[in-house]
Amino acid sequence: MINVEGLRKSFGKNEVLKGISTKINKGEVIAVIGPSGSGKSTFLRCMNLLETRDGGSITIEGTDIQQMEAHLRKKIGMVFQHFHLFPHLTVLENITFAPLQVLKKTKKEAEHAGLDLLNKVGLAEKAHAYPSSLSGGQKQRVAIARALAMNPEIMLFDEPTSALDPEMVKEVLQVMNDLAKTGMTMVIVTHEMGFAKEVADRVLFMDDGKLVEDSSPQVFFENPNTDRAKAFLEKVL
């Protein structure tokens, strides 16, 4: 579905991605793991054109993503570490904003779908609350619902639980787990090793701008192929 070939990206003199190549198949759940500064987030952001790449190619079903900007946004949903909910809009308005403005849905349709999504993430009663009154975990669940409201085919998660208090992490992972079960294609940059092990179909291990290891969670967590992955796992597990 997504084909990444020799992806390169630099910030000034600092080369952050040094030629990443991989394929992501429809319905796969990919965990991207690695030390901070390894380029995981940049890799994710390049797939959504939040960063423009310097080299290589990214294609979705054969079309380069740079040729499909407006359409790309509808295909790919993104969830950020710091939620980025719109603070001046209510929870429901946050969710219906893009469907109303971009997909030109009617208010009734958008609100109906929005409430349905809020139900799925367990926050229907917060529909008319403002983001500032929500906990971190609730905010992130709203952010997931907001991304899903555009009916994306692929969901990108950029460290979705890293900014949360420990007791909030589980509720967000639960929502993501439910989503994975629906067959959504997901790419998740995460430090939650337990979650990656349990939910991911594949683990991409990145270090220093390179894709060091691409294997199943069983292989990666129990018997990693590379020394670098071994060293990393020893530190975090």
Binding site: F80, F86, H88
Partner: peptide, 30 residues
Amino acid sequence: VDKGQKEAAMALGIPYRTMMMKIILPQALK
């Protein structure tokens, strides 16, 4: 205004004008 607001709007495919008028400017004005 936090640049994450702009990124969130871009990721949702919201056009620049709409983003400025309905997401960024209301927060800036406040």
